[in-house]
């Protein structure tokens, strides 16, 4: 007994306990549900087999059914628009803001800190706020656009099939902007000042300095931000119930929300699980890119 206690104090057993605790946590709360989800996507699940672990196998019929569902291609298109437009918006605006706040002016750090407000706000609250801003009849956005003469008639952002997915994209860009800006700011701050001075003396103008110094030095940060952005966007759920509920007629529905609808509104757990597994593969690819980009960090 004393020996076990000593070995723990020496750190030989203690590190195993620490690793073990983390592994148990991961397995119980992430590993098992994942395996169960994959298992379920290959089973026939209905109200009568809901409580069982081993149900009749379905092979790939769930996958075939999901792909053949009438809304499948619409949801795929929406998911792609949602993911890439959100990421592009978050990244470009986030990078611009990070560059802006990297300039030295009074209050730069304070104002940058205030931007975090959007990040600490719950998605449902953000959704509710944007729901008012985007409202077709009394929304602020329409009022501004009309006052500036950009539009003549109000746009019904949330109920017009042409705009509904963009309503969620706009809200999501706002939600993820601060996170992008913050990570990119950290990356910018890590670039030594004298590299810019050397480049300036070598004859580089502001644009050339950005292109030949900032961007290459930010490679790993940009890789991390983009992969985290992809994961975060695919995971995004709160904005959908708050803004459009995937409608009208699935024109703003994306894979994540569709999976939730399948499982918890239609109680078709097998199809819900199938959609999640398909998304999981995408997230896995993004994660590999993320891990690789952080591992290849080049500094100094």
């Amino acid at each position: 007994m004393a020996r076990i206690f000593n070995s723990m104090r020496d750190g030989i057993g203690f590190d195993l306990i620490l690793v073990g605790a983390a592994m148990v946590f991961l397995l119980a709360l992430a590993g098992l549900p994942l395996v169960y989800n994959i298992l379920m996507s290959f089973q026939q699940v209905d109200m009568f087999t809901l409580g069982e672990l081993f149900r009749p196998l379905a092979g790939f019929t769930n996958y075939v059914a999901v792909v053949n569902a009438p809304e499948f291609w619409l949801v795929t298109r929406n998911t792609l628009i949602f993911v890439f437009a959100s990421m592009a918006g978050q990244f470009v605006l986030g990078f611009s803001l990070a560059l802006f706040f990297a300039q030295k002016f009074p209050g730069a750090a304070t104002i940058r800190g205030l931007f975090l407000v959007s990040w600490v706000m719950p998605g449902l609250v953000v959704g509710a706020i944007w729901s008012w801003i985007l409202a077709g009849d009394f929304g602020v956005l329409n009022t501004i656009l009309k006052a500036m003469g950009i539009i003549e008639a109000p746009i019904f952002w949330k109920s017009d099939p042409n705009f509904s997915i963009w309503a969620v994209v706009i809200a999501n860009i706002w939600l993820g902007l601060a996170f992008n800006m913050l990570l990119l700011s950290v990356g910018l701050a890590a670039i030594p000042r004298d590299l810019y001075e050397a480049a300036e003396l070598d004859g580089a103008n502001a644009f050339q300095r950005f292109w030949t110094i900032t961007l290459p030095m930010m490679r790993s940060t940009i890789g991390a931000v983009l992969s985290l952005g992809l994961i975060g966007t695919l995971q995004q759920f709160d904005l959908f119930p708050a803004l459009t509920e995937g409608g009208p007629a699935n024109t703003s529905n994306v894979a994540g929300y569709w999976a939730w609808q399948m499982s918890f509104k239609l109680y078709d757990f097998a199809k819900g699980a199938t959609i999640s597994v398909m998304m999981f593969v995408l997230v896995l690819i993004a994660s590999v890119v993320y891990v690789r980009s952080t591992r290849h960090e080049v500094r100094g």
Partner: peptide, 27 residues
Amino acid sequence: PRKRDVAMVFQSYALYPHMTVEENLTY
């Protein structure tokens, strides 16, 4: 500075870490 046509050697050297020696020289 870029229009003064002077070259500077920094205490930290300020070499561009993402470029090879040749790329540093020819920048």
